[in-house]
Design a protein around this nucleic acid. Structure first.
Lengths: 225, 225, 225, 225
DNA sequence: GATGAATGAGGATTCATTCAT
DNA sequence: TATGAATGAATCCTCATTCAT
């Protein structure tokens, strides 16, 4: 009756990894909690270790510093995002109306953010303009990339630089909107969600038209409210 | 027969302002520098004192803590903003085209931000969503208020709650845009400025009623770029 | 054209002293307040100056340091004590029963202490045994001296060293009792006052009146040295 | 067959006591030294750490603040007192003459105090009357409790409130006496010890009599020297 | 005399990180 | 691996005291 599995002596690497994985998950979860409640900057490694119920030394066995924790956390979130929503942020059928696509994307993003509140803390990058920390950067680029992918569908002819820029603008808008959304509750929150969608749709709509004169078969403005 | 100053009794509050007022300015300048280079959260009072070339004790003679410095700094910035641009953010003639008004406002804001880079650090509020610190809050409310005033001209019939919400959205957009603008230079920066204006104009345009009620049946941006 | 009063040249000392005395009284009062509310050790000169409504510099114009304030305060208290109760703590008629004399003395002491609560803070000397600070020492010796004077009446034949020692013991008892008295209120306080008197009377009674063979009706040990 | 500690799950609270327990003892010893030489109020955690030869951080790994150190120190002293002298301060046979009991108790107390001089610093509670700090309070209550236990033997019929009050008075007397004792040396110290015993015996003797008319079989003053 | 500015060492406390076990 | 002990610099802030005005 083996009290613990790894007492059998075989396959230690596997087991060790197993335990290690568990520890890592545990630490990341703790880090997420701490980042959420105190913010990334104010979070301390000791606090994370405490929250995880392990000693500081243990934490440093898996992560060289706070930044590494944030990076790994970001990576896992990105990974889970991909798992959940597929490679493209939204596997859009090119015929989808912009409004619908944006609405769906925002809803998904917000749902994901709500489920993983730490995302907000991680996204909330640069205390200092222009000096985006590495840990946030990874997440940031990934998000921007996904948005870019989504945009590519709607702006097939736009120069890449423009698409990239537009993606960054969208991400900025989203972050700002998310902040407002999270800061409110109930009906007001809903209202902010709607506004966020409006901002994005109205911003993107003319660009979509510009692209290649793709006109709505109806000849009417594509995104009638 | 007043033989000495203390026979007057009143007027205790502030004397010997000469050196003191200078020191305060010096400290605020130093604080601005430190906030800019390390961010508000990471800035330390000792660092500010060092930057100002005074001892920690001196700093504490004028400010009880970092927050107070930030608040005073914000107050002065707001004050200067008012001095520079007048009470309303832009004294708009109601007939002004939205695009023009927004463009002017953004240009002014950006100019002011460029001249006072610390504004960005101060605006960059909540590490933690929903928990905006007092020092940022004051600045935030002021900015939101100014935007609201501007919007009131264009949205005379909208319910106040909507105007407030719209102002917050605009401020969010502006902050996000500013971040992007500041993160780039040269032509790219110009491009981001343009995008920022676009976002705002397109967002606001459908909300605007041309004096006689919203006539846009589509609700879509009337001022396609 | 005298811009300030003291440019007249006459009678400066008088005026200076007058104002100075006022300042000193003001500072001492403030010090008393601060000593009472924070204790002597924790009291800061800045706090005293603030309480007095003057600048730290002014304080140091009159007192070289905290200790000097305490000493002066003690001196004035001792002086007032003398003024109020005369040179001897109680001008006792040798025939007075011990109980009465002690009761009166304790009542007076407590009354004085209640009226001048700072006395307690000042008496509460040595954080460190054997190292009585100078400031407390002055007060202490004075009090001990007064008690000694009182005792001399009742112990005319005792060797001086014994009288001194007994006085110190009485003062110690009194201080301890006062602490208990001040720590309680109402009936309980009264009870402690009674106990304090009991302790002193019973302690002194056997020592008293070897002289004429006043015998102790209680049969309690009178001379157990 | 537990291969690693974490397979047990329980028992987390304290491990690795070897070094830690030693450090704690070392820190407490250092604290005792510092409390003795500078007094409790003036003692600083940094000074304690320095005295212990460790860094400030180490101290804070074991104690959250100065108060906690004082409390732990008090607890250990009380514990050792109990170990040394048993649960009751003196396991008195009810027939023991008061004088003897008091004498023994005082001797023990003084011996203990002499061996653990920090006790004095810890007992010396309130800088401010009525505001006894927690750390001193614990010690104080314990001592008062022990005295109360001792008194209960001699005052079996007295109302509990009276016994408590009497115990507090005795403790006060003892503290005052101890101060005097410690402030002297040699013969003079001996003399003060004798006086202290006298004070206590004479104070308590009448109370004992009151109780139930327990009369000395000899009919003589019970505490003849 | 009076002021308030200035000091800098020292107070408590925290933190990222390392190390011996 | 995991632990908890250890570190020392850095945090914010206070204090007694001095000095120019």
């Amino acid at each position: 009756m083996p009290d613990t599995a790894d007492s059998q002596g075989k396959e230690q690497p596997r087991r060790r990894q197993a335990r290690g994985e568990r520890r890592i998950a545990q630490l990341l979860q703790a880090a997420a909690n701490v980042f959420c409640s105190t913010g990334y900057t104010a979070a301390s490694t000791n606090a994370i270790a405490r929250e995880a119920g392990v000693s500081p030394g243990t934490l440093y066995q898996f992560f060289p510093n706070k930044e590494a924790i944030a990076i790994e956390l970001s990576d896992r979130l990105v990974h889970e995002m991909r798992e959940t929503y597929g490679e493209a942020l939204a596997p859009v059928d090119p015929g989808t109306p912009l409004e619908e696509a944006v609405g769906a994307a925002v809803d998904r993003f917000i749902a994901f953010n709500t489920e993983h509140p730490v995302l907000f803390a991680l996204m909330h990058g640069p205390d200092i303009p222009g000096r985006i920390a590495e840990e946030h950067d990874a997440l940031h680029s990934t998000l921007a990339g996904r948005i870019e992918g989504l945009l590519a569908v709607f702006l097939p002819d736009a120069p890449p630089a423009d698409v990239t820029r537009t993606a960054h603008v969208c991400l900025g808008i989203y972050k700002a909107g998310l902040e407002l959304v999270l800061a409110h509750e109930g009906a007001e929150r809903e209202a902010y969600v709607r506004e966020l969608k409006n901002v994005l749709v109205r911003y993107l709509d003319p660009l979509v038209c510009d692209g290649l004169g793709r006109t709505d078969p109806t000849g009417l403005p594509r995104t009638a409210t």
